[in-house]
């Protein structure tokens, strides 16, 4: 192989364009956000722009909407991740078995992940969860239960439902890959040795799946921490559904408070970094265990 200095130079030349584009498009705006967050800057009063130190941060932390929307983010993200992972595990186990129409069933199952989130949010809100004409309440009436005013009384729950619906296929795919990577011989050996299916599942399959469950939870958490679409489309942040991204959007583009919104942005980044650090560490552990990083 062409190693040595020339090989390395070529490799660098291949790598740098992508890195430069990534830095320009993602890092520079972040630095600018940090800079804005130390400024007093309302778009309605462009003349009064100036450096104000940590004023915006004091405002953010003493306002109360930051903490409450941090709480909302934890509840929405947490329930959606747990819900999607559990349902994903259930469907992965069901679909791992050979049965009539297995591949069609899998095709249908991955569809919610492909559906445009804006369309999913609108259809759930107006077609499934509508108080008068929604299919959910019609289903409840069939079993004799009273209708629920999902959209007005339980806005956060409607957002969580859509998120679970869209992310269950994502969890299922990762967990299914985990199930299929189990060695058949080991499972057969367990069965020959007299282990029942329940025993095999709890003492062999579940431990094997552990790292796949971890990856699912981490990736879903990171993706869902940024959730915006269903909040903006279904609830406008009412009733405990105002997540950090929506709060920031509201401050910047409705309140036109650039400096304050930037401070919200920085705080959001800090929260994400804390979660992502944990995530990266675990991902890296998985990597090292599989020896993938050393090749």
């Amino acid at each position: 192989m062409t190693t040595g200095r020339r090989g390395l130079a070529i490799s660098r030349a291949l790598l740098w364009p992508a890195l430069i584009v990534a830095i320009l498009l993602t890092q520079i705006p972040l630095v600018a956000t940090l800079y804005y967050s130390f400024q007093e800057w309302n778009l309605l009063r462009p003349g009064q722009r100036g450096f104000v130190g940590f004023d915006n941060y004091v405002k953010v932390l003493s306002d109360g909407s930051f903490l409450s929307s941090l709480g909302n983010t934890v509840v929405v993200t947490g329930s959606a991740v747990v819900g999607a992972t559990l349902l994903g595990l259930l469907f992965a186990v069901l679909l791992d078995r050979k049965f009539l129409g297995q591949s069609v069933a899998r095709t249908l199952m991955i569809t919610p992940f492909l559906v445009m989130p804006a369309a999913a949010a609108l259809i759930w809100k107006w077609s499934i969860l509508d108080f008068t004409y929604g299919m959910a309440n019609w289903g409840l009436s069939l079993v004799g239960l009273p209708p629920v005013a999902w959209n007005t009384d339980l806005p956060a729950a409607t957002v969580i439902m859509v998120l679970i619906w869209q992310y269950t296929p994502f969890a299922m795919l990762i967990l299914l890959a985990g199930l299929q990577s189990q060695s058949r011989e080991v499972l057969e050996a367990a069965s020959v040795d007299g282990a029942g299916p329940l025993r095999t599942f709890t003492s062999m399959t579940l431990p094997h799946l552990r790292q796949y469950v971890e990856i699912t939870v981490l990736l879903a958490t990171i993706l869902l921490l940024q959730v915006f679409d269903p909040v903006a489309i279904m609830t406008n942040g009412t009733g405990g559904s105002k997540t950090l991204s929506y709060l920031l959007y509201e401050r910047a583009f409705i309140g036109l408070e650039v400096g304050e919104a930037a401070a919200y942005g920085v705080m959001t980044v800090i929260v994400t970094i804390i979660v992502a650090t944990v995530a990266l560490r675990t991902l890296f552990k998985v990597f090292s265990e599989e020896g993938l990083m050393n090749r």
Binding site: A18, L19, A22, T26, Q27, I28, P29, L30, A32, T33, Y36, I222, L225, Q226, F228, L244, S245, L248, Y249, A252, F253, V258, A261, A262, G265, V266, T268, V269, T272, I273, A276, A279, L280, F284
Partner: peptide, 21 residues
């Protein structure tokens, strides 16, 4: 890991300067 970490940052956090620019 640099590349994947950019994916972890909420888009909302960099939207303000992008919009201004």
């Amino acid at each position: 890991f640099f590349l994947i970490s950019t994916k972890f940052m909420p888009v909302a956090a960099s939207i303000i300067p992008v919009y201004m620019l």
